[in-house]
Design a protein around this nucleic acid. Structure first.
Length: 271
DNA sequence: ATGGTTGTCATACAA
């Protein structure tokens, strides 16, 4: 069987439900992971997703900020939201696909939304950057306990860090810009590699190809300027890396009407 | 060096 997982920072799921539906119709993912839903749970468009076949839903949101969701056509168990950094922020959700999901059964999917970190890359003067570094430290401690090497697992999300030189439009000009500073890129790379995670996008689009998943709203013409960054990621546990079939960044969705500033990504596994 | 845009909620703040 094939398992298709899509991840997308949607920047308000209520405002952008129409384009989420368009993407679902194009890609038909089995599992859709959203970040920045910006919607309290009682206002989440659950019935609308059920009508599209996503009967299994794990959602957690805050009013106006943050929020993550896992929407699935395949049944899952063990939906868990990890509280991160002792804050009420809804920045993580995980599920484990259940027995009825056949060959996908037992695969755990973790959906993270790492704090953006504010403007000043100095934790002593910028609480938001300190929060981002603390969040990464908690992710590292979690991964140490979780041990991806012994699991069938997929980690997706908006990690708000572009780790490699070719993950940004200008490595030199972004070295002191939050999302590409050495402390962030080195911490993320250690977090990935030390625990055995495989970067699915870079498996199929290796450096030095430039790969972006985010383009600022502030550019007059985002596509012409093309000042992108690869902030969104899909990581596989080693046991799933051999099943990787494709990874697509749906850049065209960045050009849709009223777009998110992030493009969605779909990874397909042949199980 | 500066400002550029968007969404939510209430006209400030986070991204």
């Amino acid at each position: 069987m094939q398992l298709a997982v899509t991840t997308w920072n949607i920047n308000s799921v209520r405002l952008r439900f129409p384009i989420v539906r368009d993407l679902i119709e194009q890609e038909r993912p089995d599992v859709l992971c959203l970040q920045e839903t910006k919607t309290p749970d009682d206002k989440f468009p659950a019935a609308e997703f059920r009508a599209l076949g996503y009967l299994y839903q794990a959602i957690i949101g805050n009013k106006g900020y943050n929020g993550v969701a896992i929407l699935s056509r395949l049944p899952f168990s063990d939906a868990q939201a990890m509280p991160m950094c002792g804050k009420p922020d809804a920045r993580h959700m995980s599920v484990t696909l259940a027995g009825e999901a056949r060959k996908a059964a037992g695969i755990t999917i973790h959906n993270f939304y790492v704090p953006a970190g504010g403007d000043e890359p100095d934790p002593s003067v910028n609480d938001k950057f300190a929060h981002k570094l603390a969040f990464l430290a908690e992710m590292d401690a979690w991964a140490r306990a979780f041990q991806p090497t012994g699991q069938q697992a997929i980690l997706v999300g908006d990690l708000n860090i572009a780790p490699y030189e070719t993950d940004v439009w200008s490595h030199k000009q972004l070295l002191d810009v939050v999302s590409h500073t050495p402390i962030e890129t080195q911490t993320l790379e250690r977090l990935r590699a030390d625990h055995g995670w495989v970067d699915a996008i870079r498996q199929l689009m290796p450096e030095p190809e430039r790969v972006y998943t985010w383009w600022s709203y502030r550019a007059a013409d985002w596509e012409a300027a093309d000042k992108g960054r690869r902030l969104d990621h899909v990581w596989l546990s080693p046991s799933l890396a051999g099943a990787l079939h494709s990874a697509d960044i749906h850049k065209h969705a960045r050009g849709w009407e009223r777009p998110s500033d992030h493009a969605p990504i779909t990874v397909r596994l042949a199980l």
